[in-house]
Design a binder for these strands. Structure first.
Lengths: 154, 154
DNA sequence: GTAAGTGCAAATCTTTTGCATCAGG
DNA sequence: CCTGATGCAAAAGATTTGCACTTAC
């Protein structure tokens, strides 16, 4: 945790930004809830627990800054809000998501499944890929298991 | 064109909705601009050219209805607006997009490139896939060509 | 007649901005 | 000081909603 904060601090400095207490509090929340997909509002509420004086605008500005520096990724699942995900360190590619249409859970796929597909796209569409977004919508293993049990019970 | 309208009319009726003149005008705009990725506002302005009395709320309601019936797909490229794409007829899968980070153009890939990947996900994550969203961000062939020319000129 | 559909305006929600103030070198 | 950063409130967008009116069967 501390090493990651330290690293992020360096990334900010390299781009001549400071790691202010507010920014640090925001980053800490993102680190603690790394597997959740927090909206700006979520982050704000969690930061506020530790640092009640912070303003929502600052959280937005911090998230924007972190996105710009590619420390976090801004994602969008189609509900009206943007969500923010810390990038895995040293992993260039953006992980994929599984969104359950029954329970709303969002799981992550950290493996990169798109290597072959990207080669095809680069070659056949003459498109230089810099990033990707891949989300599957369907039924997660938990809901799937529940469905099974219901069938058994019948 | 007319056959597609007819088909959509049937889909609406099957779900006990009517194809009102406003809805038809909206669908016609979507058909005419099938390769664009229109926002609700875009659609509204185009519909208004033909049927000036239509209200923005009606367009939103129509697009929501069409999304629900899976006649259109609602997509989101990370600029603050939702965009709407007519589904290809008889094509279950959702096509992919190439978003150029230089010029903002959005191209479509109509082939399904995810067959293998989906098999892996269904098997290894025990996730029943119903739909997917795949977008690549990068440099399109047009901007790429421009870059080449600039290099030659140097 | 009745239920669905519409137009308009107001309300809501997310995100951004202006500006006066604050903090650190 | 001086610059970047912050907090607050206001503004800006996008989308939704309430409601009275219209339209088709």
């Amino acid at each position: 945790m501390e090493e990651r904060i330290e690293r992020i601090k360096k990334q900010l400095h390299a781009a001549s930004y400071k790691l202010t207490p507010q920014r640090e509090a925001t980053v800490r929340v993102l680190l603690e809830r790394e597997d959740d997909h927090l909206s700006a509002e979520d982050v704000y509420l969690l930061v506020k627990e530790k640092a009640p004086e912070i303003g929502l605008a600052t959280v937005y500005r911090t998230l924007e800054l972190l996105t710009e520096l590619k420390i976090v990724d801004k994602i969008n699942f189609g509900d009206g809000v943007s969500r923010f995900d810390l990038r895995q360190e040293g992993v260039a590619h953006f992980h994929h998501h599984l969104v359950c249409i029954e329970c709303g859970a969002v799981d992550e796929i950290k493996e990169d499944l798109l290597g072959d597909v990207e080669q095809i796209v680069e070659r056949d569409w003459n498109f230089k890929i810099k990033d990707h977004r891949l989300t599957f919508h369907g039924i997660c293993h938990r809901c799937h298991d529940v469905d099974e049990k219901e069938n058994e019970a019948e």
